[in-house]
């Protein structure tokens, strides 16, 4: 579904991506892990066409993102929903205006139908009667939920999550992880999540890829990445995840069954 082939990207002397190859399959939950500043956000921005690679290409459903004209790119973007790290809600619009933004701009739906859909999306993320609130009145966790509601409003085929749990307390992070699992399964979408939170990665990943020094250095199921790696950088990074999985194994429950 999504192919990143030999992607290179540099900002001045900072060579962020140095030959990234990654295949994301339809319907899977791919989690890309890596330390701060390793280029995870840069990679995800290439997938949705917010950045152009210096070399290499990204293909989504057979279309090379870099070759698309503006209108074609916009059509392709309608397949996506994206939850930003800080939610990126439009300050000047209400919660309802944010969630219904794409519906208003890209469909002929009557306002009453848009309102219905907004309500439905907000209920999916566990929020009620908040349509008239402004983003400034919401907590960090609420903003993320509204951001998720906005991302799913147009029934996307692919959802990108940019550090979905960063900046949240552990309880709220768990809530967001549950929501990601629930919504992606309910909508049967492909999801790509970037995070450095191994608890989150453990919860939501079908497969994990680790980005290190501009390249994908490990890829596989959570168990493969946690236990079968020889690369010391990978082993060190996934250590917490490994401990969690071992503890869960001892307790006799598997995280994927939840």
């Amino acid at each position: 579904m999504i192919f990143c082939e030999n992607l290179y990207k540099a900002f001045g002397d900072n060579h962020v991506l140095q030959g990234v190859d990654l295949h994301i399959k339809r319907g899977e939950s791919m989690v890309i892990i890596g330390g701060s500043g390793t280029g995870k956000s840069v990679l995800i921005k290439h997938i949705i066409g917010l950045l152009s690679p210096d070399a290499g290409r990204v293909t989504v459903d057979g279309q090379v993102v870099g070759d698309l004209h503006e209108d074609e790119l916009n059509e392709m973007r309608k397949k996506f929903g994206m939850l930003f790290q800080g939610a990126a809600l439009f300050d000047s619009l209400t919660v309802g205006g944010n969630v219904g933004f794409a519906l208003k701009e890209h469909t002929d739906l009557a306002q009453s139908k848009i309102d219905e859909r907004v309500k439905e999306c907000l209920e999916m993320v566990g929020m009620k009667d908040v349509e008239r609130l402004m983003p400034a009145e919401l907590s960090g966790g609420m903003k993320k939920r509204v951001g998720l509601a906005r991302a799913i409003a147009m029934n996307p085929q692919i959802i990108l999550f940019d550090e979905p749990t960063t900046g949240l307390d552990p309880v709220m992070a768990d809530v967001i992880n549950d929501l990601i699992i629930k919504t992606t399964r309910a909508l049967k979408v492909t999801s790509v999540t970037i995070t450095h939170d191994m608890v989150s990665a453990n919860r939501i990943a079908d497969r994990i890829a680790m980005l290190y020094q501009g390249k994908i250095v490990a890829i596989g199921t959570p168990d493969e990445v946690m236990f079968n790696q020889t690369n010391p950088a990978v082993r060190e990074f996934v250590e917490i995840g490994r401990i969690i999985r071992q503890t869960e194994a001892v307790q006799g429950r598997h995280i994927g069954a939840q």
């Binding site: 929903g81 790290q85 890209h106």
Partner: peptide, 18 residues
Amino acid sequence: GTMRVTEQIDALYTLAAN
């Protein structure tokens, strides 16, 4: 500028809005 640094401008692009 605030919209840029809080990724609201990127969000507009992702919502297929220029």
